[in-house]
Amino acid sequence: MTTVSLSNMQQRIRASQIPPVYAILVVVFVGAIIIDAIFGRGQMLSGPILTNMVVRSVALGIVAVGQTYVMIGASIDLSVAFMISVTAVLASFVMQGDPNKVLIAVVIVFLVGILIGLVNGLIITKLKVNPFIATLGVGLLLKGFLNASFTNFVGAVPASFQTLGYGEIGPIPVSILMLLGVALIGGFILQRTRYGAHLYGVGGSEEVARLSGLRTDRVLIMAHIICAITAVISGLFIVSRLRSGAPWVGPDGLYDLESIAAVVVGGTALSGGKGGVAGTIAGVLIFAILDTMFNQIGMDAFLKQFLRGAIIILAVASYTYRYKGEVA
């Protein structure tokens, strides 16, 4: 391949708007297949393992789509892990295994989620509290109330509700379709609607957006509500797989920090205004591929965590290291 056609290809990739993280995704995937072939059982490419790989990334993927919104708006949401717990516990508590209560439970958890997102957004925009502290504080509030009210698994979801977690339409699990749906809708709103454009504007420069007549507070509050809604969907998916909710399901899954890591690995800047859902999904898939590969080669769970941390840093460094300015 000559340099001319290489740069030609680079241009074409740039023109097609594929986020650069997809190059990392391909490298990681090929690397994982090779490592698995040498040290593992060489089954990475089999259907069940590939399917399982995607199913395992559904919970993180959905909430990461919402996290993408707040981070494009130059905000952050550290309360999602406890929102997931609240949803899981509340849903199974209200349902108590009764199929007739599914609807009311779902309505309740969505209302609670929207309320929490609204509170996050209001604290950040109206009280001018740094988003890191605001959502950390709201997360602590949720944690306190959860642990004070529930100590263990409570209630149960009815079998019909478990379709969400375990059902299949043809060969494809319902959960994967759900992730796909959330990602497509999330991507569509960001790229093709006026609201999406406004959010990029607010994240890029709040001042400029405000001076050009945007109601920046509303835009950011909406982003927090959207993020909360994705946390609720994630929570519903998790409780449908676990059959019952417990206060620790969110924080134990590290959904707060991992969703932020997936969004940043996907190319969304912490400073806001840049990025997108497609990159985030690639970030989530990278984590899923690594997890699956580590399992296939039987790696120690703790070593996995070690490597995961190192890979997050290296992946982000791969796009940031050329930057000339100061980063804190």
Partner: peptide, 8 residues
């Protein structure tokens, strides 16, 4: 490496 400290 210019990785934001939150991530690093």
């Amino acid at each position: 490496l210019k990785v934001p400290s939150l991530i690093a």
